[in-house]
Design a protein around this nucleic acid. Structure first.
Lengths: 256, 256
DNA sequence: TAGTGGTCTAGACCACTTG
DNA sequence: AAGTGGTCTAGACCACTAC
């Protein structure tokens, strides 16, 4: 067996297992974009040769990144860098709400809501929002107001903030061409991959303007979902507030 | 290498990998109680000999059950059958609510609320509840009403149903000896291990009686958590409705 | 048919826990 | 010192996917 010390040049090998070090190196290739989302990484056998380790060890390293959601294995085809979140039913707001069309009682699983951009303008970010995006106080961002419809009824109200140098391309895109989902747009226009998001749910009453836009009575109760989305480097790329009828809120969680 | 056909007697080996079959057999030993919660299972080497397979294969089988939450590995000590849920902060209702004492603003992480049993009586279960518990229509169950306090303030109202032959031992235990948590009680008195639970959250308004018990105004908004808890065999062993002030509701979820 | 990941073996040595 | 799980090797064959 070759000597370990000659194999690990100067990496961050402090108390880390071999496959842990390899996993970190693979993660670097993904985060830096050397391996881009959707593409296949080299075969296990090739990587084993490249790193000078056994097949089982490179498999263990890959397993770590699969667990983290960075890679995806497909039998017979290869191992692929995962595409970011789409904002569809699994990651989108519809997993928090169950809206019924007025017609049928327990309707079909609700599809992606139609998006109506109410406003989109460049604003100066307050200190908290700027630091969230890793910008200096006073930096600018994009503030978007969006209303989402399900079957001819306004259902969700969203206030979205995006960091501005990164998302400038959105300003050059007519809102008519935005489509229904934000994340595919961020990917295509700004090269931003949303890899992870944190949602926090609380409860309050609608103010007069919100109630009007949602066609609900003033002071109607609403669920408020606060989302922070992060790219593959762990940088926050979106802050969003979503309001929807509290009586349509329905969320299921499994414990252990 | 020994012949495979001689090694797998008559198990459910239909299209299943070797470690998958072994995992199923280990799961049987846990579910049937041959290996009880909290105890160590035989060492990997012993199991490898017992099943006539390589160490790596038994490790893969164990990994499956660890992933399922049935086993827990501890380096240097052994592999243990996991103890059930406790209903503490990780699995309990406090992960849905953030109550503040009136004194200090952003207080310490709230501990387990004190439990006050309002009533506990044997009732006839309706058809839905009975079938949930795997009982025939008209079977009996235990209906418990419980109020939970955090620092001298009533905060949560719970209605709990339990299947009756299984939980009969609770009727012989004075409520003064119940303690603050239900699941340890179920474990000690009835031998029931709660292994998994499903929570569903919705919003509605408190009725007059509920509001009175929670010292809140009538028609105050509340979060309603509906829980079904299951034992290690997958049998439902608890149905619970929990109501708490909607303004204290706060839940965080990570996506991907 | 060639290439991929999936399964499995039979060893070895290491790190941690316990008596 | 003995026993446990954790890591790693260097092979083998199988199942699936593509061309």
């Amino acid at each position: 067996m070759p000597d370990n010390a000659t194999r690990q040049p100067a990496a961050a090998s402090a108390g880390m297992s071999r496959y842990g070090q390899i996993a970190a190196q693979l993660q670097q290739k993904i985060v830096t974009g050397e391996w881009s989302p959707g593409t296949a990484i080299p075969a296990e056998s090739a990587l084993a040769v490249e790193f000078g380790i056994a097949l089982g060890t490179i498999r263990q390293a890959i397993a770590v990144l699969v667990q983290q959601g960075l890679l995806e294995r497909v039998q017979g085809k290869g191992t692929f860098v995962r595409t970011g979140l789409t904002g569809g039913s699994s990651a989108g707001m519809m997993r928090f709400f169950r809206f019924r069309s007025e017609a049928d009682a327990d309707a079909a699983p609700t599809a992606v809501p139609r998006s109506e951009i109410l406003s989109c303008r460049s604003v100066r970010l307050d200190k908290g929002m700027a630091s969230r995006f890793g910008l200096e106080a006073g930096a600018r961002g994009l503030a978007i107001s969006r209303r989402r419809w399900v079957a001819d009824t306004p259902r969700l109200l969203e206030s979205i903030w995006l960091p501005l140098p990164r998302c400038a391309a959105l300003q050059d895109t007519p809102v008519a061409e935005w489509g229904e989902l934000l994340y595919p747009l961020l990917s295509q226009r700004c090269g931003i991959t949303v890899h992870r998001a944190m949602d926090e749910v609380t409860f309050r009453l609608l103010d007069a303007e919100e109630a009007d836009l949602l066609a609900l009575p003033p002071s109607h109760p609403c669920a408020l979902v606060t989302r922070q989305a992060f790219d593959i480097q762990g940088q926050c790329v979106e802050y969003r507030l979503t309001r929807g009828d509290a009586y349509a809120f329905r969320y299921t969680a499994e414990i252990r």
